[in-house]
């Protein structure tokens, strides 16, 4: 998804990992920010790692001029675990007891989950949350082949389509 035409053609959006500053600058530079914000008001969006930062309402450690998509009522901290030396693989334990190995890479932390439903935790701290049509996770499910979060997101998309 790189252009407004791409965005108009999709029912749901996954904002993956990457550099949140880079993604937000490109959204602004390519004039996509207003359209993505509008999309995130009603349609299903899953943000992982950098994607979580972008959909968070409040971010500690964001650049002063960093524009966010916002909408997810959480407070997150960028690079909360530290730099690349502190990146790790660990377990995400979901509400139904499913536990999956996932990757935390220069990962953010969800400091306050507000009114969100907590979908998964790591060492008792929330690492995946949902609020209405928005899902956010501080980890990368895709690098380890974990699928549980994707299944939850697909259910959300299906609910929105029916």
């Amino acid at each position: 998804m790189k252009t407004s035409l791409d965005l108009a053609a999709v029912d749901a959006l996954i904002i993956p990992g990457g550099e949140s500053t880079t993604i937000s600058k490109l959204l602004v530079n390519f004039d996509l920010m207003p359209q993505v914000r509008k999309f995130a008001k009603t349609k299903p969006v899953l943000g992982t790692c950098a994607g979580l930062i972008l959909i968070s309402d409040e971010v500690i450690g964001a650049l002063p001029d960093q524009e966010l998509i916002s909408g997810l009522p959480v407070k997150t901290e960028r690079n909360a675990y530290g730099g690349q030396l502190s990146s790790f693989e660990g377990s995400a334990v979901f509400a139904d007891g499913t536990s999956e190995n996932v990757a935390f890479i220069r990962a953010p932390k969800i400091l306050e989950a507000g009114n969100c439903e907590v979908l998964a935790t790591h060492n008792q701290e929330p690492v995946a949350v949902q609020f209405e049509n928005l899902m956010g996770a501080s980890f990368h499910p895709e690098l380890t082949g974990a699928t549980h979060l994707h299944k939850l997101f697909i259910s959300l998309v299906e609910e929105h389509q029916s």
Partner: peptide, 17 residues
């Protein structure tokens, strides 16, 4: 329950770039 600096974590950052 965590392991740091696995090959996946190392190449994972490059995936993000």
């Amino acid at each position: 329950n965590t392991t740091e600096s696995t090959p996946l974590v190392k190449s994972g950052l490059a995936e993000m770039l």
